[in-house]
Write a protein that binds this DNA or RNA. Structure first.
Lengths: 342, 342
DNA sequence: TTGTATGCGTTATCAA
DNA sequence: TTGATAACGCATACAA
């Protein structure tokens, strides 16, 4: 086992000083042509690479960004990681991934862990529990310490920072409007609990769409699910107790459970009931019938988040501080789970 | 914005030396009760946390482990990340995630990036291109530099390091045996190209199962897919050109494409053709019909990998070097896509 | 009981 | 043109 080459070792080997080696490798004109070439040749031959940690300490920059996501079952979040990773790597950054498991404590712990020098900034989607508690001191603290923060998907208004979201209200409206367009009149919604920002917003969009089409809103047609775990059973119970011709679900898992339940109870999708989901993932794509969804472009969200964060990181500190909210367009991917009933 | 607290600042504030502060915070008996308490109280009040980077430089340990995976579309890999992350966090480690996108160059680049001090060791599943080229110098280099390496899933014999795999041959055999048990006689296999270790091994298992049941092996019943991209079309063409009553696919995507194609051509699954997949992910679980699969326990693979790596990292260097290969048991999850034809 | 000096690997400043 | 020195934040052997 040969330990890593350092400036010191090169210096010793070539019988020059450390600073000479450092300068030569950075092509400083201070160093004479001959010595410079000699040093560079040596370094190249033995494949010298500067130590990132030392650089981090010196520059007070780690060139890594931390991303904390609530859960990994949702394909959406993994595509966001993918987008972040892509942009980050292009810009010479590494990506530290942490999972909060939707737990407030784990989220705080993760942030503390990374805030002590491991990362230059954060990209984060809030844990369910955090939104429920409404306790965001850890976010504010990071910002106060000069660590930029980008929130995506599950964000909160009260924190001033960059944000990347989709227009959840408009997306939901689009979904419900589509159901109305294909002839649905009694449309159920399967949502998450209200304290999750996206759940609330999508519910708003649902209501607005109904309103605009002069359809009465019925509280009983909304199911709010707390835990992914029990979702299947809850959906089954819910749907067996209400007569509907359309279902709007806030994620693919719920949508698929809905289809399953409906089929098992003898209804046909889309002939009897149309079902639309949110977040266009593998599940929607591969499912039979192919699931009509509002596409959420996780990849793009990740890319935008990373760009935003890196921009802030590389900005000269004198520039004025202001925050952007980027809204990534949603699309409507029509597949086989919704169909005109005429 | 208040910059981070350092030992230096505390020392200055309390008018003691840096080392006194350092020792006091580490509960050294060298320091007098009174000063110690004073310093600790101060540190606690202002929430002092040592700088990870400085610690890394000092200890020549980063307490982070790097994981490089080939692609993130497969739910399997994300569950592995999840498992790694879990164990790592429990042991006080961070996780750096990189994607190789199945590209040899990106894999090498990622490793070089992380090897310069960013990580203490690697957990890695080989890129397709890497296996095709058979060029593993970057792995050997990392090992030579004293960075432990754990390979999982897509591994290679010629590199001496810890490995976490499943018994692919046995898993495949199990799958095919199940198809035989439910009465299938002409069983197609949808695999990956041979240079991907798991593709080769699972093909072996397929053959062995047939042999043991005195069924003739037919080369034409095997489809080898190179790119995920074109898989759907290839599978469609393949299945429309051969009459089978069972299909064994090496991942869920292929399995689902098979079901889709079969159904579109008027065949019923499982009544006419039984289909079994590999890797028990969301797709298999949620699909209709529920997909029978060989379960691969990505979470466990991740956990074992992390444990193995950390064990090596924390071992005293004098201990003898030896490598383990952990084989994680596969299971058979029977759902609705396979059914007895009696 | 406390403080000084040194080093981890770099780079930047300044002196030779 | 080159080299010595200090600094980034921390820990520790050793000196006071």
């Amino acid at each position: 086992m040969k330990p890593k080459l350092t400036l010191k070792k090169i210096a010793k080997e070539l019988d020059v000083s450390i600073s000479t080696v450092s300068k030569a490798l950075r092509d400083s004109p201070e160093i004479g042509e001959e010595t410079r070439e000699k040093i560079k040749a040596f370094a190249k031959h033995y494949n010298y690479k500067p130590n990132n940690i030392a650089l981090s300490l010196k520059n007070r920059k780690t060139k890594t960004i931390g991303i904390i996501i609530p859960e990994i079952v949702h394909h959406f979040f993994t595509t966001v990681i993918s987008g972040v990773e892509k942009v980050a790597n292009e810009m010479g950054y590494n990506v530290l991934v942490c999972l909060s498991d939707n737990s407030f404590d784990k989220e705080v712990l993760n942030m503390e862990m990374l805030a002590n020098g491991s990362t230059d900034g954060f990209i984060l989607s809030l844990a369910k529990e955090t939104m429920q508690k409404g306790d965001y001191h850890h976010l504010q603290e990071a910002i106060n310490q000069g660590m930029p923060l980008v929130l995506f998907d599950r964000v909160v208004d009260s924190i001033a920072c960059d944000k990347v979201i989709i227009d959840d209200v408009a997306g939901a409206k689009k979904a419900v409007q589509h159901l109305l367009d294909v002839g649905c009149r009694r449309i159920a919604m399967i949502s998450t609990v209200d304290y999750v920002s996206v759940g609330k917003l999508r519910t708003k969009g649902y209501k607005e769409a109904l309103e605009e089409n002069d359809i009465e809103f019925d509280e009983n047609l909304i199911l709010k699910i707390e835990e992914m775990e029990d979702s299947e059973k809850e959906i089954e119970e819910f749907l067996s107790n209400c007569e509907v011709d359309g279902v709007f679900a806030v994620n693919e898992h719920f949508a698929i459970s809905a289809v399953k339940t409906l089929q098992e109870s003898g209804k046909k999708v889309p002939q009897d009931v149309s079902v639309i989901g949110f977040t266009d993932g593998e599940l929607s794509k591969r499912f039979i019938p192919g699931l009509t969804t509002v596409s959420q472009h996780g990849m793009r969200i990740g890319e935008e988040s990373a760009r935003l964060l890196i921009e802030k990181l590389e900005r000269t500190p004198t520039e004025e501080d202001y925050y952007k909210t980027i809204i990534v367009e949603t699309g409507l991917v029509v597949r086989d789970s919704t169909k005109s009933k005429k």
